[in-house]
Amino acid sequence: METVLPQVETMVAVLYFGLFAMSFDFISGYTGYLSFGHAAFYGTGAYFVVLAANGKIPLLGPDTSFVALLVIGGLIAVGLAVLIGAVSFRLTGVYFAMITLGFSQVLYVLVRDWGYLASNPRDGPAVLGRTEPFSIGVPGVDSLDLAIGQLAGESVEGLLGVLEFTATEVSYYMIGLVVLASYFAMQRIIHSPFGKVLIAIRENEERAEAIGYNTFWYKLGAFAVSAFFAAVAGGLLAGFRRSVSPDGTFYFLVTGDALLASIIGGFGTLAGPLYGWLFDEGVTEFLSKRGEGGGLLPYLRDNLGEGLLSTEVFDGLTVGEAINTFLNGHAELYIGVLFVLFVLFVPSGLLGTVRDRVGGPVGEAIASRLRGER
C-alpha cells in the first residue's frame, strides 16, 4: 500500500489546499462566476497568521489563539472580498474572471515587494518568529488542545493521553477537523434558501432577477463566504508550514491549481475539489522523481532486479534507462494528460460522475437505499 498511498505530510497539504479548492468551488461552481483571483484570499489568511504570530498586527499578540487568528483572518478576507466584488460583479463572464485576476496580481506584487511582510519577500518566505507551535482544539484542556506543524518524527500524546501519534499525524487529524467543520458549514449554506438562489443564478441569472431576487447582493454574499474559508485554508497552511511566500499563496497559478482540482473532482459538488486535489497529489507522488511515500519509480527499481534493469530493449536503451526516461521527473506531464482526458471524457469530474450514476448526492443515495432495505 505504501507504493500507492501518499505520505501523511502530503495528506495534510491535501486537506488545507482542498479546503481552498472547495471555497473556490463555492463561488465558481455554484454561481458560475470564475474567480481567477481567489488566491488573494488564500494569501490574506496565510500572511495574517504569520504577521500576527510575529507581533506585527496591532492589538494581537504572539500568544493569540490560532483558531481566533483563523477567524479574524477570514473576516479580513471577507472585507477584501466585498471591496473586490463590489467592482467585479458589475461585470460577467470572462471580464469578471480577468478583473479578479487583476486584483489578485496587484496584491501579489504588493506583498512580494513590501519589506514589512518579510525581510526579503521577493527572494524568501515570511517565517514565524515564535518557537512554539500553534494548536487546535479546546484551550485549557491539554488532551484536547493539540499542536500542529511540529517537526516530523516527534511523538505526541493523543486523545486523552491514550493514543500516541507522530507530530505530522496529529497535524493531519486536527487540520482535518477544521476542514471538516468548514465543509459542513459551506454545505449547510448551499442547502439553505440562500444557496438555492446561488444555484438559480448559475442556471439562469436573468430568470432569477425576473422573479425578484437582487442577484448582485447574493453573488457578493457568496463571494464573501468563499473568501472567508479560503483565508482559513491559508491560515492552516501558515500554521502547518510555519512560513509563507507570495508565490505559494497570492500567485495566480495557485488559483489555477484550485481550478484543476475542481475540474477533476467536479464543479458544483463542493467536496469534489478535495477529491480532485487528492487525485492530483496522489498521482504526482506516485510518479514523482523522488518516489516519496513509495511510488512507482523506486518500486520498479527495487523489484525488477539488476539483470532485468540492465537488459537492452532497443538500440542500446536498457530497461532501467527507459524507466528513468519515461517516469523520472515527468509526473506533471502525465497529470497534464490526465487533465485533458478528464475534460474530454469525464466533464462532470470524479464526484460529479458518481452522483450522476447514483442519481444525486452520494450520502442521500446511500441513506435512501438503506431505508429501502429496511
Rank of each mutant, 00 (worst) to 15 (best):
V49Q: 07
G73E: 09
G294Q: 06
E205M: 09
A147V: 11
K219L: 12
A53Y: 08
V141I: 15
D302A: 14
F342E: 01
G212L: 14
A147S: 13
I99C: 07
Y42M: 02
S28H: 08
G248F: 06
Y30H: 10
I136S: 12
L236D: 02
R290F: 15
A365P: 03
I136Q: 12
L70Y: 12
L59F: 07
V4Q: 01
Y33R: 00
H191R: 10
T311W: 15
L110V: 14
T10D: 06
L370R: 07
G158D: 07
R374N: 09
A181L: 13
V67A: 13
A46S: 13
T325Q: 08
N324I: 09
F26G: 00
R241G: 05
R122T: 13
D247G: 11
G74I: 03
I263L: 11
V319F: 15
H330L: 06
Y299L: 06
T64N: 02
W277D: 00
A21R: 06
V12G: 10
V162R: 13
L327Y: 12
M98D: 03
V343H: 08
D247E: 09
M11D: 01
A227C: 06
R369I: 01
L327G: 06
I199E: 13
V346G: 00
A365I: 08
Y108T: 05
